[in-house]
């Protein structure tokens, strides 16, 4: 019996959300009184295995092979499925990223086991897992539990759980396992990857600066980009800004875009329609900059400035440069 946490990697680097999952895995393992095992699949993953121990794992199961270099569902699910079948972990966790959702859903199906998907909270009661999920675009919360008795799979909403601070003195055993599928047996091929250049990933970002229709043009995003650069923030947008062609769809936040939960969300010229709220209402602190004092975004915000974003945003950037000692 153990709690397994799948550590997602891209080009040898762990996704930050994996350490959040490992942090919550630690809490669940402690509550159940069983060890915490990190699963690291990839190519050249020694450093990752060590890092997983620093972030809280007792043990690491590492699979190091060229067939696992890039995430692909077939080899990853085959290997995870084999480990689950042979070792019968009580819980398998992963961050609810694009890949994590897919992998755990597949593995849970193969194991004929329940999956609690994209949960905001997770705890143990009487040996069974209880969780809550955001449904209806975050307008309702649903409490769910998995039937006890079998391996239970869970994916955790990105940024809803905290990673432990890494402790480089921690020691843990690393066990190596071989992949289950040879390259010839894997039908899917990854033919290329275009990494979004120089931009902070929206879902992982601690700060998001977002612009709406009022930004007015692609060039209108320039002051928002400057603010984002000073803060190390990701750029977000409303659907109206995306539809008008000011910025690409990758940046859309909301019901039909991405869901983000940063520490700080700065909404500039966004009215705050419920479909936009669906993507950002769980942000810790929301700042609204809007010239209409009646805009619904102010109902959600912690701080508001009623004014023209083209004046307020540059002033904010200048002030931050001063205060944070940049520029």
């Amino acid at each position: 019996m153990a709690v397994y946490v799948w550590i997602e990697q891209f080009k040898g680097k762990a996704s930050p959300a994996s350490w959040e999952a490992l942090g919550q895995g630690r809490a669940i393992a402690n509550a159940l009184g069983i060890p915490l095992t990190a699963l690291v699949f990839g190519q050249g993953v020694d450093a990752l295995a060590t890092e997983a121990v620093h972030y809280g794992a007792d043990k690491v199961i590492a699979a190091d092979d060229s067939t696992l270099a890039d995430y692909r569902l077939e080899p990853y699910a085959a290997l995870l499925g084999k480990l689950v079948q042979e070792e019968d972990p009580q819980v398998v966790l992963a961050a609810a990223t694009s890949r994590g959702r897919e992998l755990l859903a597949a593995a849970a199906f193969d194991a004929d086991a329940p999956l609690l998907a994209d949960v905001l909270t997770l705890d143990v009661s009487d040996g069974a897992l209880r969780a809550s999920r955001a449904v209806y675009g975050g307008r309702l919360l649903s409490d769910v539990r998995a039937a006890a008795g079998r391996t239970q799979f869970v994916t955790l909403r990105v940024r809803a759980f905290r990673a432990l601070p890494p402790d480089t003195t921690r020691q843990g055993e690393v066990r190596r396992v071989a992949p289950t599928l040879a390259e010839e047996a894997i039908a899917v091929k990854i033919e290329g990857f275009e990494v979004a250049a120089g931009e902070v990933s929206l879902t992982d970002a601690a700060i998001v600066v977002a612009g709406g229709r009022a930004v007015g043009s692609a060039e209108g995003f320039a002051p928002l980009r400057e603010l984002a650069a000073v803060l190390g923030a990701a750029l977000g947008a409303s659907r109206a800004a995306v539809d008008a062609g000011y910025i690409s769809y990758e940046h859309q936040v909301g019901q039909t875009g991405k869901v983000v939960s940063p520490d700080l969300y700065i909404a500039c010229g966004i009215s705050g329609a419920v479909q936009h709220q669906a993507g950002m209402r769980s942000s810790r602190v929301i700042v609204a900059i809007n010239k209409d004092p009646e805009a619904p975004i102010f109902k959600l915000a912690r701080y508001g400035i009623v004014g023209d974003l083209f004046q307020v945003v540059p002033a904010l950037t200048a002030e931050l440069k001063k205060r944070l000692g940049k520029g």
């Binding site: 919360l141 649903s142 209402r281 609204a288 109902k299 508001g304």
Partner: peptide, 17 residues
């Protein structure tokens, strides 16, 4: 194998701006 045990409104954020 999954049971929904409750449905509720999230804590309101209104009125704190």
């Amino acid at each position: 194998a999954i049971q929904v045990t409750g449905l509720r409104l999230p804590p309101t954020r209104e009125g704190t701006c």
